[in-house]
Design a protein around this nucleic acid. Structure first.
Length: 279
DNA sequence: ACTATCCCCTGACGGC
DNA sequence: TGCCGTCAGGGGATAG
């Protein structure tokens, strides 16, 4: 599933290629990915230029000339691919953006259909729903992270996944950062010492940065805008490794549902009580 | 304020 | 081999 590092990788790839391109046509093959707003999208985008491409949490933001904005959320299985107009349209291609005097098309492909593309017109002002997102995971300061976490009484993992608390973290990087910080996923956020939360903050930002450097994690079918898979799946220490040895202590990684989601952790490094154990 | 549950949707997987 | 049931999973909505 695309989380912050995967979305960032897609954004960087697209930014290098399509900034400055002018939209000429939008084909809608599956209206559901547009949410309620529907097909007005196609007409509104004609002749708009792509001025910039940004990311907020797991959202991709295409900034257009005239102040318009297109938001893309990849959901579970969404991909934005830059492909030649002569390439066959692969299954589950829901939207196709064509550009003036350009061979390549931007295609939104999403088998599971959890992804969404929406349009923010000039009249709606910038961002809108994006303002409800929490601070960016890579930008929040250690002090603010600690303060926000201690102000809540939730299990730490579901809290990390809550986009209103912190934007960009998903299942993979929540598990990886908790493992590195030696924190059990069910620990209550307000029961964690500032010291432990500082550790978690650092682990989280390290993991996210390393994953971006590796081009993201390709579990399931994630690829970037050029179709290239990420490399971070080879560096995962906990996520998806049920029954395999913990890289730190060789205990077997376990899987447990926490907050309704699969969670992988090391029962020895990440004890529920006595956070720090001396030997 | 928080938890639990459902829903969306399809590919993958297990059972027979 | 193939059919069928089950389920994961981000996030929004809803109920408690």
């Amino acid at each position: 599933m695309p989380e912050l590092p995967e979305v960032e990788t897609v954004v960087r790839g697209l930014r290098k290629r399509i900034v400055g391109w002018e939209l000429s046509r939008v084909e809608v093959h599956q209206e559901k990915c547009l949410g309620g707003v529907k097909s007005a999208l196609a007409g509104l985008l004609r002749k708009k230029k792509i001025l910039a491409i940004d990311r907020r949490g797991k959202n991709i933001i295409l900034c257009l000339s005239g102040g318009g904005t297109v938001f893309v959320h990849l959901g579970m299985s969404g991909r934005l691919r830059l492909l030649s107009g002569s390439a066959p349209r692969e299954k589950h291609t829901h939207l196709v953006f064509s550009f003036l005097n350009r061979e390549d098309q931007l295609r939104f492909i999403d088998p599971r259909r959890f992804g969404r593309v929406s349009w923010g017109g000039e009249e709606k002002g910038p961002w809108g729903f994006l303002s409800r997102l929490g601070p960016e995971a890579l930008e929040i300061s250690p002090a603010e992270f600690v303060a926000r976490a201690r102000a809540r009484r939730r299990e730490i993992k579901p809290l990390l996944l809550d986009q209103h608390f912190l934007a960009g973290v998903g299942n993979i990087y929540a598990d990886e950062s908790l493992h590195r910080a030696g924190i059990h996923p069910r620990r209550r956020s307000d029961s964690l010492s500032p010291r432990a939360l500082f550790r978690l903050h650092r682990a989280l930002q390290q993991v996210l940065k390393e994953a971006i450097a590796a081009g993201g994690t390709s579990v399931r079918s994630y690829v970037d805008s050029k179709g290239v898979a990420g490399g971070y799946q080879h560096s995962l220490r906990a996520y998806g490794r049920e029954g395999s040895p913990c890289p730190a202590c060789f205990a077997k990684i376990v899987r447990e549902i926490v907050g309704g989601r699969s969670s992988f952790y090391c029962p020895r490094c990440q004890r529920r009580n006595s956070p720090r154990r001396k030997k």
